[in-house]
Amino acid sequence: MSRLLEVLGLKTYFFMEAGIGKAVDGISFYIDEGEVFGLVGESGCGKSVTALSIMRLIPPPGRIVEGKVIFEGEDLLKKTSEEMRDIRGKKISMIFQEPMVALNPVYTIGFQIAEAIIVHYPDVSWDEAWERAVKMLERVGIPNPRRRAEEYPYQMSGGMRQRAMIAMAMINNPRLLIADEPTTALDVTIQAQILELMDELKREFKTSILFITHDLGVIAEVSDRVGVMYGGKIVEMGDVFSIFDEPLHPYTYGLLSSLPKLNEEGKNRLYAIPGVVPDLLAFPEGCRFRDRCSCAFLKCEDDPPMIEVKEGHWVSCWRYAEDV
């Protein structure tokens, strides 16, 4: 498998009056072709900012201050804005948590999908783009696609809207799909259908997926490899089995032990990790998890290094540093 995306030391900060919010602070990971990489962590840990940084869609006062985003061998951060525009929606596309607000309320579903074609292939006629949009709607399992294409987002159910959103993202056969909490707003049965659809499409189109969620259950189901984020950093990364069977980082450990057995009822779990995620400006120096970690010790006042404990299984925690 060859490397599709490699994020290296990415830092995205928000320059606010109250201070610098280090929303993403030096994260590195890669995604191979055909692979699903899951990014998991509590709300506010920087998952969406990571996704938008890859797309180079960070709104002010945010800015990517450092790092590389190597996609198909080229650094996206060095592309001109026009080159970048052409990559978005054609080679890398994105779907969002709430398709109701992510779709434009005043244009039809068909128009919004067809538009995604036209902006990249201006030679394609609107009629043809519309036809392709209808076909794609059919492919993502929307019944009566020809009529549905004429409808507006508010006329569809949540599940249908997310399917339409997926159709829009997949219409140009992208190499990478970034899915930012695509099932969080949906109820459990619809969630399962959407996950299944994404899995089918991934195989059919050979698309890699960056799958973002705060739900470990979903991560276990869809990912090949997983990155666990906390406070703008990836604290642990490895294949899905290593992460779930032998979690190393105290944070991952906490997340997992607060999870009811995966195939049991009751998705409304509460994390048993003490304390709350601090405000972005109020993280402690050194290990950002320090004030919530039951294993914290003196060394933790320094930044912990990324340590490869086993092949392909990385953790950022002083407990695994050999010379301590």
């Binding site: 938008l52 797309m55 869609l57 525009r85 052409d86 990559i87 978005r88 929606g89 054609k90 596309s93 994105m94 969002f96 709430e98 607000v101 992510a102 779709l103 434009n104 309320p105 538009e115 995604a116 902006v119 990249h120 959103m165 829009m168 993202a169």
Partner: peptide, 13 residues
Amino acid sequence: KEYITTARAKGVP
């Protein structure tokens, strides 16, 4: 609005 992000994310100029 988020649909603006969506529009940019699909490459709309």
